[in-house]
Design a protein around this nucleic acid. Structure first.
Lengths: 241, 241
DNA sequence: TTCGCTTTGTGCGTTGCCGCACCAAAGTCG
DNA sequence: CGACTTTGGTGCGGCAACGCACAAAGCGAA
């Protein structure tokens, strides 16, 4: 695999940091391929590696006696392994890839932590990402309490849409149900209404976003705040239309 | 007001940090009194001050068109103004005191940020607190999705109980309902069942914890993970029995 | 004491989602 | 090509919480 250069990486965080900082990280970055269900870090085990995603979407989940519920979603706007940046070597959550083949720049957790400690500017941008991610998690908390299935599903689809190229999301109803902690058949029914509204096209194992504006209308205020925070703190993100 | 010394402050974070770091902060700390509904920071406005609580409990809420829903709770185990530590000067949340008179050590946000940047050891402990708080927020997200009222209310009472002296919580049903984003009368009924079980004693504007073990039993796995994380990363916290 | 405000107690019809179960369709593999 | 697995479609009874409404009780002020 080629050595990644700042202008060529599609990771937004790497792209947004000062040249010097990227130069520090660059020798330690290895471009790798990730597949569906690949684990980025495991619940309560030492986080050895961090991943700057260049494509694809990861889910950070909290596992509740067998079941796992999503507390955050991560794509090329950030880096996995936030606990490492916060001085913890592990966390009671796990992270795994939710879609098929994608690429990422991998870096040893210890090296990233050291680099962040050594450079204030690097630290700043990484911690700003942490802030944006915290807002996302907080929004997930309020969404589960205040909005019902249609809003939450629309929100979730929008968050995935923001993080992929094109409009196709490879997702099964079952998976969405697990992430939202609802019943699978509830997802099926709600997807139908979204499809009837012309917002999406649902096919076996696949959801195609046809009208993002309509999805936004359904999601209402459940969507948008974390995305706004990211743009304010770091830079452009997500799909415009 | 007297100048606070490390051995005298009841803030756990200040107590847990290296002497040198406390010495750096100490000249900038002012001991103040906080009253119910005092605002620690306002939604989307610059965070000027940070507060190391010594008693009392604050709620960090996300306001959703008039309504506000709790995304986190803070007591003497931490410091308010996490976004400042993460390089943001504001955040789409607000924080206010949920109980009556309590004391805190106040510090200008900029000074705390500078001190954290200057000392790696100080930064480490502060960011570890951020990690623990993130886990709490994540837990709030999963709790709203996976547990019903009795569990969530028990969890919430336990979290307050951890942060006050004694067993009395000054809380109205209305307030709890708002924090949990449920109906007020739902809280009333659920408190009755907790009272019938002997877990609490409910009075006008007041809840007294009578049997913490029973509360723990009701809360089940919805309670405990963030508290465990705090103990692992920083030190003792909460009530033992 | 009386008034007025806050807080709590209680009931009732409605709703959103659950739990479960079963079948159909679409892919997979021998 | 046929058997199996995965995924999606649909229905039904049940329950937790909702929205709403109103009365009762606590408490301070006049």
């Amino acid at each position: 695999m080629s050595l990644p250069s700042q202008s060529y990486t599609r990771n937004l965080l790497l792209g947004a940091m000062p040249e010097d900082d990227f130069a520090t990280l660059q020798p330690h970055l290895v471009r790798i391929e990730l597949n569906r269900n690949d684990v980025l870090f495991e619940c309560n085990l030492p986080i050895e590696q961090t991943y700057f995603l260049e494509s694809g979407v990861a889910s950070i989940v909290s596992s509740e006696d067998g079941e796992q519920i999503e507390v955050g979603i991560l794509g090329r706007e950030g880096v996995s392994g936030i606990p490492v940046l916060l001085g913890a070597d592990r966390t009671p959550h796990r992270a795994f890839m939710q879609v098929g083949p994608s690429t990422a720049l991998r870096m040893e957790a210890g090296r990233l932590r050291d680099a962040a400690n050594a450079s204030e500017s690097l630290r700043t941008i990484l911690l700003r990402f942490v802030q944006a991610f915290m807002v996302q998690t907080a929004q997930t908390a309020t969404a589960s309490g205040n909005y019902s299935l249609p809003e939450r599903l629309a929100r979730w689809l929008l968050m995935c849409h923001d993080r992929v190229d094109g409009d196709e999301l490879e997702l099964t109803h079952d998976f969405m149900a697990m992430m939202l902690a609802v019943r699978r058949s509830g997802v099926t029914v709600t997807l139908h209404t979204l499809e009837a509204a012309g917002a999406i096209r649902a096919m076996r194992g696949r959801v195609i976003v046809r009208d993002r504006k309509k999805l936004l209308a359904v999601a209402g205020d459940s969507y948008g705040r974390p995305e706004e925070e990211y743009r304010r703190l770091i830079g452009p993100f997500g799909k415009s239309i």
